[in-house]
Design a protein around this nucleic acid. Structure first.
Lengths: 207, 207
DNA sequence: GGTAACTTGTGAACGAATTCACAAGCCCTG
DNA sequence: CAGGGCTTGTGAATTCGTTCACAAGTTACC
């Protein structure tokens, strides 16, 4: 497949959310213009984004809400369940384990890991925290799909190296660090420090 | 000031982090090439990013680590303390209140709000959770700078409208919703669902 | 069935962001 | 102080993403 821009993928994710919203409201069809307005973009952008994957609409009419939602789920890989492991049973990690939004969207938490003896063996929202040292062995049988990293920045790189060596091909990192991964591994960062600094930049450099 | 791309601001934030790392390691100067390698970008990109704000380097030598860090802090508005309020005392909100990274980088949590009687009046990491209804009144005297939104998507828009009406000009939202704010308000999203879906997209559409 | 009102899908035009490439400046060595 | 080795700062070239604009297809109505 032709390379798809990250910005496009993120918008598709948004469109899907809006479609689900429209579905709930009982709308049967929706135009690119309506989707665009809901998402703060333009109708041309919506159509272009979709056009990378096929043509799903009817001229003169728009898109069938239910059908387009299905197509998007298919495109985004949401027709199967993805196994998540949470690495780091600190405050953020524990909050995520309990986060219901995961399961709602087809992501199921399979296990929680930590390296600290204060955490290993204790329960977090129904999960017994495992020793990170046993990850490689567990991964062979359990084959988790996505690792969510909620550990401090200082040893995040070595942990991610270990995860990758154990076969993980997708990482969502909350660690405020710039991690290196080989090209076959997908990495996304949730870097709060960066977002906050973007905000203080905006406040400081306001016109 | 000329408009600065969001991607540039985010990279500046990264560079600052790397500079602080280099400073700790005792390096006195650094070249754009070294910064680039650390951040997975190119030296031309680093120089171009910096050039929007002035010329901070010495030809043939590179940048003074300490000086450039200071300049970046100034540019990013990190020379003052920013008052944060956390809106939503659920799992994520509570985890953030306790997050030490805030204070380390000059952001101080001033208060925590919620709308649920189960939360209001109770303590979260030393903060007594306040009633969201009293936000407007509090804001007049306390003048918080940044609101961090950790509430469910369904009523996020009305809450953000209220925050904006109360004078908030910067919002970091964890709510999985596309919020509308007037142009003078800066808004950043931390949308985990979107990042996860980008990952499952990558896993699904792998070459 | 003809026409008016809509809406999609998509090349082409445009604009924004990144990369190239090089003149200019700095340091070190002999 | 001349020459070689680096590195910056920045216009120009390029690449990438967005927007425009319109032919083609659909529905509704008379």
């Amino acid at each position: 497949m032709r390379h798809i821009a990250d910005s496009t993928v993120r918008r598709l994710s948004l469109y899907l959310r809006f479609l689900e919203e429209f579905e709930l409201r009982g709308l049967a069809t929706v135009s690119s213009e309506e989707l665009a307005q809901r998402g703060g973009t333009t109708s041309a952008q919506v159509r272009k984004d979709l056009s990378f994957f096929g043509s799903f609409g009817k001229r003169g009419l728009g898109y069938d809400v239910h059908e387009l939602a299905g197509r998007l789920r298919q495109i985004m890989g949401l027709e199967r369940e993805w196994k998540i492991v949470i690495i780091g049973a600190g405050k953020i990690g524990s909050a995520l384990v309990a986060y219901r939004g995961f399961r709602e969207r087809g992501y199921s938490v399979a296990a929680v890991y930590d390296s600290s003896p204060d955490k290993i063996g204790f329960e977090v929202d129904g999960f017994t925290v495992r020793d990170i040292a046993q990850f490689a062995a567990d991964a062979r049988t359990e084959q988790p799909d996505i690792a969510v990293l909620t550990i401090p920045a200082d040893n995040a790189q070595e942990v991610v190296d270990m995860l990758v060596a154990s076969g993980i091909r997708a990482v969502l990192s909350f660690a405020p660090a710039q991690l290196q991964v080989p090209p076959h591994v997908a990495l996304k960062n949730m870097n709060m420090a960066m977002e906050l600094e973007s905000l203080s930049f905006a406040l400081t450099n306001q016109d």
